[in-house]
Amino acid sequence: MLVKILADSATDLSMNHYNEFDIEMVPLTVHLDEKEYKDNVEIQPKTVYDAMRQGKSPKTSQVSPETFHNLFTTYAEKNEPLVYLAFSSELSGTYQTAKMMLLEVKETYPDAPIDVVDTKCASIGYGLVVLYAAKAAKNGASAEDIIQSAQYHATHMEHIFTVDDLEYLYRGGRVSKTAAFVGSLLKIKPILHVENGKLVPLEKIRGSKKLFNRMLDIMEERGTDFTNQLIGISHGDDFERAEQLSSLIQERFGTAKEDIVIEMVGSVIGAHSGPGTIALFFLNSSPK
C-alpha cells in the first residue's frame, strides 16, 4: 500500500501539484471583511493582495483540531499509512495541533500508521520538501524512508526572500515601526531568510537593481548542484519579477527552466508579507 502524503495550504503549491502527485491538502483559514475562508479552496491569493492594496489587513488562523481529528481517524480506521508534513511550527500552531490530535486518535487506534513531521519550512520551500516526498511515495517508498528524505530536504532547504513594503512586516511584528518608516524613505529592500523555522533579517539592500544580484550571490555562497535540483520561486502577485529572477538563475547557474517552480505566495503567508514579495528556495550544501 502506497504512503499518502498530507500537507497544508502553506506549501503554496498549485492544485495541479496536489493532483499530479496525489497529495492530500488541509487548508489554513483566512479572515477578511469579517468572513472566514478556507485558503486555496474558498479564497485565492489575488483577492488577498488586492484587499491589502486597498489598505485592508487580512488575518490568518491554523487548521482546526476537528479537521485533523477527522482526517486521522479516517486513515486509522482503514489502517492506511499517512505522513503529514507540516508548515513550520515557528510560524503556525498547525503542527502542534496535528500532534495533539494524532495522540487522541492513537488512544483508540494505537497502531495507526500515521506520522507528523515539522518541516520548519514555509511557502515553496515547504512545497519543494512535499514534492520530493510525494515523488518518493509514488515510487513506493516506505513511511520511514519518506520521513528521512523529508527531514533531509527540510534541513537543507534555504529560504531567501525580500518584501516590497516593510509596512506589512511591521504589521506582522517582524520589524519596528521606525525601521519600516526609514526603510520606505530610503528605498531599503530587506533580505530575510528562515533559520530554524523562524523569519530572520539577513541584509538590507538600497535600491531594487542590486537586489536580485545579491540574492543570487547568497544562493551561490550557500547552495550547491543547481543543475540537479528543483529551484523554487514564489511571488506576491508579481509574476513578471519572478520570471526575471528565474531567467537570471538559468543564465548564471545553467538550471533548466523546467526545474524552476514558480508559484504565487499563498493567502496565508501573503497576508503577512504583502504584495511584491519575492522568495527564492534551493538546497544548500550544509544544514541551515
Results as ranks from 00 to 15, higher is better:
M1K: 09
L2Q: 11
V3T: 14
I5W: 03
L6A: 05
L6V: 10
D12L: 08
N19P: 00
N19L: 12
F21I: 03
I23V: 15
V30T: 05
H31M: 12
H31V: 13
E42K: 02
P45Q: 02
K46C: 00
D50T: 13
R53F: 04
P58Q: 05
E66I: 13
T67L: 12
F68I: 08
H69I: 04
N70K: 13
T73D: 09
T74L: 12
T74A: 14
Y75W: 06
E77H: 04
V83A: 04
A86I: 01
S88L: 02
E90P: 00
E90A: 15
T94H: 03
L102W: 05
V117D: 03
G127T: 08
V129M: 07
A133T: 13
A137Q: 06
A141C: 03
E144Q: 14
S149Y: 00
S149P: 00
H159I: 09
I160P: 00
D165N: 15
L166H: 03
E167H: 12
Y170C: 09
Y170G: 00
R171E: 07
R174L: 11
R174Y: 08
V175A: 01
S176R: 06
K177Q: 13
N196T: 09
L199D: 01
V200D: 05
I205E: 06
K210M: 08
F212N: 10
M215L: 15
D217S: 15
E220D: 15
E220I: 03
R222F: 08
D238F: 09
R241M: 12
L245M: 15
L248P: 01
I249F: 06
E251H: 09
F253M: 11
A256Y: 06
K257H: 14
G266V: 06
G274M: 11
G274W: 07
T277R: 01
A279I: 07
L280E: 00
F281E: 00
F281Y: 14
F282C: 02
N284I: 07
S285D: 12
S286V: 12
